[in-house]
Nucleic acid binder design. Structure first.
Lengths: 211, 211
DNA sequence: TCCAGATGAATGAACGCTCATTCATAGTTT
DNA sequence: AAACTATGAATGAGCGTTCATTCATCTGGA
């Protein structure tokens, strides 16, 4: 179901573009970027091979478009939700929830975002400086805000904290992708946040910097 | 420098095998698995194309061998170090330190392990059930031991905690791989552990489960 | 309403290039 | 000279991309 995203009617061209993107997601997820064949994507989109090139510049551009399209949607949603909230911890909760929900809802997309777009360093760098960078920057802002307000510890490096949070969520999604019997991804939201907030060592044992 | 790993002399055959593995690491890291050409690996190993097939069953087997070889070495070292220690927190520290040091020492290897071996789900599943699974299992044991002894919180799911720790380390390595000006990877060991142990929220704010 | 002509989106067979792999030959050791 | 190891040019399958052709739709004159 392509359905209702921004509640606006799609032109025939936009509709076909989306059909191709959707097909690309399925095929990239099933076969992997390099093994996936343009012919198969065309077949899945119910479109001729050549048509792909009327909508996208080539295979690589198609993959990039999948990524950009998905992240743009997600970031827009995120920004909208953030406006309603003040408490940094609430913001963090919502961010993690949306992240897990968005990917939990669409395994194929999750696979493409998590695995297929990480092939070459060059490619990753492109992504990092684009939409992914924007996403990380949003997360970083939340952490910073929490530290400034005293809701979060001030004695951990902001960038490192951002890194740990993102890494934890990211890895959780990865493990869910590899699991034989997946279950609901967003069920981990609560426990994950608890661990990120409180750490693994009970308070009474906390000392200065370890190591 | 291939150098002194198990302090044993290598047969000529073992030596050439290692030379090929090393070359494969460099070329896979530089070009990515799919773009890398066997010819280039042969050239880098100073060996003819056909020779590769006297030592490995093909391109995919070569990538898998890089992974297995590196992880086997690492796991052996880890097990040796663990024997000397009792305190779970010390074990965790050492594990994180060795992880960061091993990859920090060899960027090309890090790149192959982090990026190139994650291409297809099928491939990842193979890895997860092999050496990578063994590594995760070691980490899981440490967390479990700490929880049983009361050194770590018992109220977080063991698997999830393992996941968060691994995800955090893994993502840290990823960001280091993408950085323009890398710096020393193991410098983050202390801060990373601190954050994993204490979380991001000060003790006085801790409550029951969030969400 | 009907039709001739114009438009450009869609098609898919064919092209051309890129490698992974092979194997006939050459070299080296015992 | 036999047995083992290495070589690297040749092979051929696979696949991204192109482009000559088709076809559905639109236009406007009768």
């Amino acid at each position: 179901m392509p359905g209702s995203d921004s509640a606006r009617k799609l032109t025939p061209r936009e509709f076909k573009r989306m059909k191709i993107l959707r097909a690309a997601i399925e095929v990239f997820a099933r076969d992997g970027y390099f093994s996936a064949r343009m012919t198969d994507i065309a077949k899945a989109a119910d479109v001729a091979d050549g048509t792909l090139y009327l909508y996208f510049d080539g295979k690589e551009h198609l993959l990039l478009s999948v990524f950009d399209d998905a992240l743009e949607r997600f970031i827009d949603q995120l920004k909208r939700e953030m406006k309603r909230l003040d408490d940094p911890l609430d913001k963090l909760k919502v961010m993690v929830r949306l992240h897990l929900e968005a990917l939990g809802r669409d395994r194929a997309l999750a696979h493409v975002l998590q695995i297929e777009t990480r092939h070459s360093r060059k490619f990753m760098q492109l992504l990092s400086r684009g939409k992914l960078g924007e996403y990380l920057s949003l997360l970083n802002d939340i952490v910073k805000e929490g530290q400034d307000s005293g809701d979060f510890r001030g004695d951990v490096n902001t960038g490192l904290a951002t890194n740990v949070i993102f890494g934890a969520v990211d890895e959780l999604v990865n493990r869910w992708l590899l699991a034989d019997e997946p279950g609901d991804l967003s069920q981990y939201q609560g426990p994950l946040l608890k661990m990120l907030c409180q750490g693994i060592v009970p308070c009474e044992f906390h000392e200065g910097a370890p190591g």
